[in-house]
Computed example of a mutant assay.
Amino acid sequence: MKVIVVGGGKVGYYLSKTLLAHGHQPHIIEVNKKICANLAEHLELPVVNGDGTTLEGLSEAEAETADALVSVTGRDEDNLIACQLAKRHFSVPKTVARVNNPRNLEVMKALGVDIPISSTDNIARLLEREVDTSRIRQLLALNRGEASIIELLVPKNYALDGITLSELRLPQDCVICTITRDDVLLIPRGNTTILSGDRILVIAKDTIIHDLTKMLRLE
């Protein structure tokens, strides 16, 4: 997943570092040259010295090829503009904005930001859950977002077609509840197989959802 991160401060740095560790492709846009040099020195990713609130800056980062844009500067108005430009001019599928003033949260939503978030700690997790793959769908958040009930869609010509649940050795913090196959609901056991076209209902902590989709090869 290619993610453009606007803002190379602490939040942008750690967000990009997390996305890299999870196998994604972050591209940072930062207006400060010194910060850009520091980012390029410590992170192996493309860094654009430019303004993410302009068409030129977004073009240089090739925003038209991005799966998502996350703007995490210290100015809410800049984060809003970056998200609006990304959506309207580059058709970026998902936009996320850091909201420094919680009062601006509803305004961000009304003006077209897909995911405005005032708590920066959860940005990477929210981003992955929303746009990591079209084959995962959150149905219900549990315990204030600590865990979720999610639906996983197994694609056609699935690489692991016929594998049993016991062979997968799934993470500890997830439980496969049901498998729907040809409109028939199955209650899975260890010897239950996963086949192409299955719909899998899972309860999992949000911190392991990416690992789960990677293990199941649903990315």
Rank of each mutant, 00 (worst) to 15 (best):
L218D: 06
T192M: 09
L69P: 01
H42E: 14
D211V: 06
A97V: 12
D51N: 15
P46A: 06
Q138R: 15
R144C: 02
S166F: 15
L43Q: 11
N104G: 12
V107H: 10
R137M: 10
A37R: 03
I35M: 15
C174R: 08
V3W: 11
L20N: 03
V47E: 04
S59E: 11
F90V: 02
E30M: 10
A68C: 08
K33Y: 03
I149G: 01
N157M: 12
V92W: 00
N143E: 12
G162Q: 10
I117L: 15
G162S: 10
E30T: 09
R135K: 10
G74T: 00
I28A: 04
V113R: 05
G162R: 13
V3H: 03
D76T: 01
K109G: 01
S134Y: 02
I176E: 07
I194D: 03
S16F: 09
E64Y: 11
L185I: 15
V96H: 08
N191W: 12
V96K: 06
T164A: 10
N191C: 06
I179E: 01
L201Q: 06
S196E: 06
E60D: 06
V154M: 05
I187V: 14
Q172D: 09
I187A: 11
K156T: 00
V184G: 01
L218V: 05
D198K: 13
P46G: 03
E64Q: 07
H27M: 14
R125Q: 15
A68Q: 06
E106L: 15
A82L: 04
V6F: 04
L142E: 04
R169C: 13
L160M: 12
L139F: 06
E128L: 14
L170I: 04
S196F: 15
S59W: 05
T73G: 07
L127Q: 03
V70M: 08
E167Y: 15
L111K: 05
V70H: 03
I117A: 11
C36G: 08
T65G: 01
A147F: 13
Q138F: 05
N101D: 13
L43E: 09
L15D: 01
G190K: 02
V113E: 02
A97E: 03
S166D: 14
K109Q: 11
S148Q: 09
I194N: 08
K34H: 11
N101Y: 06
L105V: 08
L39W: 08
N122C: 08
L160P: 02
T213V: 14
D132M: 14
D211E: 13
I123M: 10
K87C: 02
E62S: 09
A68K: 06
L85E: 02
Y13C: 08
V175K: 15
L212Q: 06
I123H: 07
E106W: 15
K156D: 00
R129K: 09
